[in-house]
Design a binder for these strands. Structure first.
Lengths: 271, 271
DNA sequence: CCCATAAGTATTATATTGTAATACTTTTTG
DNA sequence: CAAAAAGTATTACAATATAATACTTATGGG
């Protein structure tokens, strides 16, 4: 007998719903999520281990996902990997994202000014997630991929979004964050992080030097709704030694701010 | 009493599995897929209509997907829309895609030569799906979004991939395709389409002029595995009148071919 | 402005569907 | 080559998903 286990987050409004919740669906997604952690194919046993499902369940969901076309199975190794069909979801999301639509052409323009990569990111839980990327240099592969998550607390995008949210919200996010250092320069101290957020607010842009990658400078400016609340950030990475922090502040920060402002101005009013 | 309905495709190898198939998972994905067709939020009733689920089922799956964070609900209108979290799947897929990883830097380089957009696409069923996009001009928004599908039969990418598959496979795909014209120049006739595929094979690249968009020229070259079979295509769009078909053939086609060849050469041998 | 209709929400009894135990086969590895 | 591990198939069981229905909230035409 299995206890109902895993306390499930219950949405704030209107909730009787244990009975309107389909647990099987959650389990299916858990299997897909198991592939998010790292590259490499997974065997049945490893999937079971990562998801907390038993072997039978892993078998069933894995099989179902394969039949649906979301997983591929290598008949030799009998291991699974994500299938192209998953890309449908990116399209589904982006097609509905008014922000991405407005931003796209402006991000492309911005990327041409100095020939840099330009990204759009939004906050989700304690992370930022890149929704649109206009890559211009060969950074590490994961850094060029849409859908990539990074911790909000140590990224320029994350800090500048929090800078344009309420103090309470910013603190809540920082407190909920796993603030493990990524590089030896990553600022993890709560007060210091809050300080960086305050700075971002003062300057109108966030900047991180070697926070997430040793040789990376990252600047980001907020996309604001009509109440002045950040809903996203335009982020521009630059790499040392080609760029210096000062150059980034003088050239890239204004570009990010101008681009973000232009996007903000086009948003259809919330409410 | 509901008949077991919807004859389900049964995977070719090893199949007893009605019992290893979780129908609820399929229904959940059907709900997400309902959002793929077009932009705009959906209400419960419309979701039920599009998915073929009854109101209760739509209610259950919609609620579950919302709790999982894949759908958002507007409390005012009580309508649903895709949530950012769907972008996770793009990352999950791309992170595991050796091809995308190899291709990325080369596509970026290629895009700089003439300042054009450069895409990577793969075949899925009768469609191509863009997995990597390096956008350089403001085309229509959907045309810049990864995960976008287009019919294989009328795209340069689709025809050139089929050109480097077996004749049987190419015919099977064309026959299975819904060959509705997209522009007034779209070639839909079976023989004519097969002819275009043969031409692509002869020249080493595919080209379409106004096939999918009135003023678009599209060229594409095949990425080949070690047996000479196409696994993807490098596709470059150009727009008239800035580009003429002849210029595209002389400049963009060679660029696409060179880029595709370079990617092919880096693939770890299949098998 | 108000009524009629449609859309969305909540509840519950029922059995279909998902479950997990187990035995079997294939692969890996020491 | 033996032993263990990984993957596959089968089945009896009941927990979970289901769909009918009653209820509440919105919408739009007269």
């Amino acid at each position: 007998m299995i206890e109902n286990s895993q306390a499930r987050k219950v949405s704030s409004e209107s909730n009787q719903s244990q009975t309107l919740y389909v647990g099987s669906l959650e389990k299916g997604f858990r299997v897909l999520e198991a592939f998010r952690d790292g590259p490499g194919d997974l065997g049945l046993t490893e999937i079971a281990a990562r998801t907390g499902l038993d072997k039978s369940a892993a078998q069933r969901f894995t099989n179902t996902l394969q039949q649906l076309g979301y997983l591929e199975k290598d008949p030799r190794s009998r291991r699974y990997r994500p299938a192209v069909r998953l890309m449908d979801f990116a399209y589904t999301y982006l097609q509905h994202d008014q922000l991405a639509e407005i931003a796209m052409s402006r991000l492309i323009e911005a990327s041409k000014i100095f020939g840099t990569t330009v990204n759009l990111c939004v906050l989700i839980d304690t992370a930022i997630i890149y929704t649109v990327r206009i890559p211009h240099e060969k950074a590490s592969f994961p850094a060029t991929v849409p859908g990539r998550r990074m911790p909000a607390f140590c990224t320029a995008g994350g800090t500048v979004i929090l800078a344009y949210r309420s103090r309470e919200e910013a603190e809540a996010v920082i407190d909920a964050s796993d603030r493990t250092a990524i590089t030896d320069k990553t600022v993890t101290d709560r007060t210091a992080v809050m300080e960086r957020i305050a700075e971002a607010r003062d300057r109108g842009y966030g900047i991180g030097i070697g926070q997430a990658l040793p040789n990376e400078i990252s600047v980001a400016a907020p996309v604001l709704d009509n109440r002045g609340r950040a809903i996203a950030a335009v982020q521009i990475p630059a790499y040392m030694p080609q760029w210096t922090p000062q150059e980034a502040r003088e050239k890239l920060a204004p570009l990010a701010m101008e681009t973000a402002r232009s996007i903000s101005g086009m948003l259809r009013p919330t409410e």
